[in-house]
Write a protein that binds this DNA or RNA. Structure first.
Length: 274
DNA sequence: TCCTATGTTGTATG
DNA sequence: ACATACAACATAGG
C-alpha cells in the first residue's frame, strides 16, 4: 500500500524507539530482503546502538543510529523500502515475530517491526560518517521548494514519448507518487492518463505542477499523520473497484491498464485528445 | 481456478 | 547512448 504519505505514516510508527538502545535484532528471509546489504553487519552494527533520526524521502526511508559498537563519530544508516505490501509498526515487548517479520529491533519496552508478506520491500545498511550512496543525490521531493516548474518541464521533455501516467510513476521525476496518487493528480487536472508527456499544453503543465504539489501536501497532512482518509471530494475513495462514479460529474469511472498499471479516470473530464 | 494487487528492476527492443 | 515496454519477483485475498 505505501506511497508518499503512507510511507511517512509508517516511518513515524518507529518514533517511539528514538533515543532507546537496541537490545536485540531479529532477522528473517534475509537473502531476499537484504539482497544488497550484509545482514550480519546490520545485526552487529545496530545491537546496542540508539535510533537518532527517522527520515523519509518519497517512498524511501532512512533510520540513523549512533553508539553501541559503532566507531566513534560514525552513524549506522538503515534504508527501508516497503515495496508493495510492506509496513512498519511498533508493539510492546514481549513480541513474537510473525513469519513475515523480516526485521525486528527490540528496545527494553518496544519491538520495531518491518513486516512484508510479498517480499518486494528491501532493507539496506551502511556504516559511516556521511550518508551512504542509497541516501545521497535523491531527486527533489514534489512538495519541496527545490521541485520547480522548470525541473518538472525537463522531466516531461525527457520522458516526452511516454504516457503521462508513466512519468508520474517514475521515481526519478515524481518521488513518492504511486498508482493512486498518479490517478488522483490526473483526475484533478483533467488530463487523460495515456496522453504523451510532451503533448501537454502550457496550461496543463501549470495545472500538473500545482496540483501534484497540492496533493502531496494534503496527503501528508491526512494519511501521513494518522492514516485518516484524504478529502471526500477526491477520486481516492472511488477508484478501487469497478462501478465507481466520478465525484464531480457523476459519470461512470473507467478502469483500464495504462503504462502497465490499473488506471482509473473519468473519460469525459479527462479526454484523450487535448 | 483465475484474477488482481498503493512497486521496482532486469532485459529486450526501438 | 538513450528511451520505452514488459515480464519477473512472491504472496494473499476475492
Amino acid at each position: 500500500m505505501p506511497e508518499l504519505a503512507e510511507v511517512a505514516y509508517f516511518c513515524r510508527q518507529w518514533n517511539v524507539g528514538i533515543g532507546k538502545p537496541i537490545q536485540s535484532v531479529h532477522l528473517h528471509h534475509e537473502k531476499r530482503v537484504f539482497r544488497e546489504s550484509d545482514p550480519c553487519a546490520l545485526k552487529a552494527g545496530l545491537t546496542g546502538a540508539r535510533l537518532r533520526q527517522a527520515l523519509t524521502h518519497g517512498k524511501q526511508m532512512c533510520f540513523v543510529f549512533t553508539g553501541g559498537s559503532l566507531p566513534g563519530g560514525a552513524n549506522a544508516w538503515l534504508g527501508v523500502h516497503l515495496g508493495m505490501t510492506g509496513r512498519l509498526f511498533a508493539e510492546p515487548t514481549p513480541f513474537a515475530p510473525d513469519p513475515h517479520d523480516h526485521l525486528v529491533l527490540k528496545t527494553a519496552k518496544m519491538a520495531l517491526v518491518f513486516r512484508d508478506p510479498r517480499l518486494f520491500g528491501r532493507i539496506r545498511f551502511a556504516v559511516g560518517r556521511e550518508p551512504p550512496a542509497f541516501w545521497r543525490g535523491l531527486p527533489p521531493e514534489v512538495h519541496s521548494p527545490s521541485f520547480s516548474r522548470s525541473l518538472m518541464e525537463a522531466h516531461l521533455r525527457r520522458r516526452g514519448r511516454s504516457p503521462i501516467k508513466a512519468v508520474l510513476l517514475d521515481q526519478a521525476c515524481f518521488p513518492g507518487v504511486g498508482n493512486w496518487m498518479a490517478d488522483e493528480i490526473l483526475w484533478q487536472t483533467s488530463i487523460h492518463p495515456a496522453r504523451l508527456a510532451a503533448s501537454l499544453s502550457p496550461d496543463e503543465v501549470g495545472r500538473l505542477y500545482r496540483v501534484s504539489r497540492h496533493i502531496c501536501r494534503v496527503a501528508l497532512r491526512t494519511i501521513g499523520l494518522d492514516f485518516r482518509d484524504p478529502p471526500a471530494s477526491w477520486l481516492f475513495a472511488h477508484r478501487w473497484r469497478d462501478g465507481g462514479r466520478c465525484p464531480k460529474s457523476g459519470e461512470l469511472l473507467v478502469r483500464e491498464t495504462i503504462a502497465g498499471r490499473t488506471t482509473c479516470f473519468a473519460p469525459t473530464r479527462q479526454r484523450a485528445e487535448s
